[in-house]
Design a protein around this nucleic acid. Structure first.
Lengths: 196, 196
DNA sequence: ATAGTAGGTGCACGATTGAACACCCAAGGT
DNA sequence: ACCTTGGGTGTTCAATCGTGCACCTACTAT
């Protein structure tokens, strides 16, 4: 059941607060923000918003955090043509790109892509590969391996029980490492910028 | 003064925590995370990180929030540093994903890519297009246009003084709009996530 | 007419919070 | 050999936090 007008307004204030303070306020502060006199009202409001997916509890269940729909407005208020049957509208919209692509910051490294050996996989020279270290790589993953003291981005393949590195460009050969294959990390994302 | 190795590690744990809980933990939880026995240690850590710009106080000065540098990610070089393995943050300049790709947040919108009409340009279905509105588009730019009430991502071309939309996939036809071509925005970036 | 429900008040309580202060100790600088 | 500094421990304390419960009061459905 779509939330009512009042809650819309309340949500707006929460969003405004979030912009400045980057967190969902405490119940007491919610009261101040909304003009409530009782913390219970604040809590009930949060529960309502939780139902709609605007806020969530933290994994530790000890505080509130923005939910998947919390940032939804970014696309919504950009008025698009009347009809707008497009899927783009309501899709989960993680405004923080970082969030979208980085799951474990402490183990994530950005590596600029050099060369066109993966061009058929839509990975261009100059793109930035988002690489997660210390994650087990399996066949089919795109991995950053260390070959000749350089980073190499390839698909991890398996051939007669041995790992091989498969480029996505017919002009490049498959790499069959002699000794042990040193894998730096697994590619979990890609970022590209179009110059302007 | 670049923070030391230990703090680097602590910061990493904070960042990991943030991904899940979207907030800077309480002093007590910082102790758990870092293995401190005393909240004072936690507070001093936060103060150190504040000095470096990784965390800030909220406007109400009642809690911590991520600072401007909190979302910095390690950017590695293409050739592997001799010493290896750990901490790829050799000379690496800090790299912020959002800043890298989004220059004007208020006019920037993320649009999921549907279809494979741009596959030869390395743009796959499911990728997220970073689109800047209100920027003048010129020939050769990738633009999001509105055709038949739907978003379409194509290269903007010019033919006999008229704008046309060029797909990057031989299976698709060039679009030659009759009336006026409605351009929603210019593609300035691309983000892709590899499922895991 | 009445019952149910949604949004809100008011209050009491135990848990958790951050601030403050005294202290420890290993590493460096002089 | 001395002293300073930085990272950390241990403890106390008042403020704030979230929860639970009882109650109120429109609005709505039957």
């Amino acid at each position: 059941m779509a939330e009512n007008e009042k809650d819309r307004d309340y949500l707006g204030r929460l969003q405004d607060y979030y912009v400045d303070s980057k967190r969902i306020p405490s119940l007491q502060r919610v009261c101040e923000l909304m003009g409530f006199a009782s913390k219970t009202a604040a809590k009930k409001l949060l529960l309502r918003l939780e139902n709609e997916g605007f806020v969530e509890r933290t994994p530790d269940d000890d505080a509130w955090m923005p939910g998947s729909r919390f940032f939804e407005r970014a696309l919504a208020d950009s008025h698009v043509p009347a009809g707008m049957p497009v899927a783009a509208e309501n899709g989960a919209e993680p405004f923080m790109l970082d969030d979208y692509v980085v799951k474990t910051p402490s183990r994530t490294v950005m590596i600029p892509v050099k060369g066109d050996s993966m061009i058929d996989a839509g990975i261009h020279s100059g793109d930035i590969a988002v690489v997660e270290r210390g994650t087990g790589a399996s066949k089919g993953d795109f991995v950053v391996a260390i070959v000749d003291n350089e980073f190499t981005l390839k698909e991890l393949g398996l051939e007669r029980g041995r790992f091989i590195l498969i480029p996505h460009n017919p002009a490049y050969p498959v790499i069959r490492p002699q000794g042990e294959l040193e894998i730096f990390g697994v590619m979990v994302g890609l970022v590209r910028r179009y110059s302007h």
